[in-house]
């Protein structure tokens, strides 16, 4: 039951893109077309889950026992960068169709702050390993949901008469703002669910 609340919170109430401001560069960059949005979303879910699992283990079985918590930032970014490289090589070798679909998004993911952000958030919240992995999956799903919704809107905008100054990133940001406002409707849902359990 608590896990359900965790998932609902991460996907809808505290959507990583629309409420926590993480991962906005690829959000605008890959939301112009639906197919790139889906590709990016799937890659993010995949990498985010593995990255969070590994960084959680690194934090609690390497950094904390050795009292090296202050090197967290360096350790996490290296783990993520190495992981992305590894996933790329692995897919290229063993799953070429998947590689040709996701390949171009993978290098972009290293500098996607959503991945690093979720890895840091689970440590900050002191979550247990299963909670952390579930949170990562749910955050990835939330990211994909927002990305696909925005791509749908922006594909429409492409064929409408938008004023010159608002074309591109400007209208994308304003649309994202309106979506974020719509997601505000979910605020409090997590609280009432938790209260129900209490």
């Amino acid at each position: 039951m608590e896990y359900i609340v965790l998932v609902i919170t991460a996907v809808l109430v505290k959507n990583i893109l629309l409420a926590q401001y993480l991962g906005n560069c690829p959000f605008l960059g890959t939301s112009k077309r639906m197919d790139t949005a889906i590709g990016m979303g799937v890659s993010v879910i995949f990498v985010m889950t593995i990255a969070t699992a590994i960084t959680w283990v690194v934090q609690y079985s390497v950094l904390v026992p050795l009292k090296l918590e202050y090197l967290q930032t360096i350790a996490f970014i290296l783990v993520i960068a190495a992981l992305v490289q590894f996933v790329e090589l692995f897919l290229k070798k063993f799953a070429p169709p998947l590689y040709s679909a996701l390949g171009i998004f993978l290098p972009l993911i290293t500098t996607n702050c959503a991945i690093m952000g979720v890895a840091l958030l689970v440590i900050l919240k002191g979550q247990t390993f299963p909670e952390a992995v579930l949170f990562a999956v749910a955050s990835g799903v939330g990211f994909t949901l927002a990305l696909i919704l925005l791509a749908g809107i922006r594909e429409r905008l492409e064929v409408s008469a938008v004023p010159m100054a608002l074309r591109g990133a400007a209208s994308g940001l304003i649309m994202a703002g309106l979506m974020s406002l719509a997601f505000f409707g979910f605020v409090g849902v997590d609280g009432s669910l938790k209260a129900l359990i209490q």
Partner: peptide
């Protein structure tokens, strides 16, 4: 809140473009 951040940045970007 978050929506304000997106909208303000979008409008500023549009002004810069103009």
């Amino acid at each position: 809140e978050a929506p304000g951040a997106f909208v303000t940045l979008g409008i500023l970007l549009a002004i810069m473009n103009a």
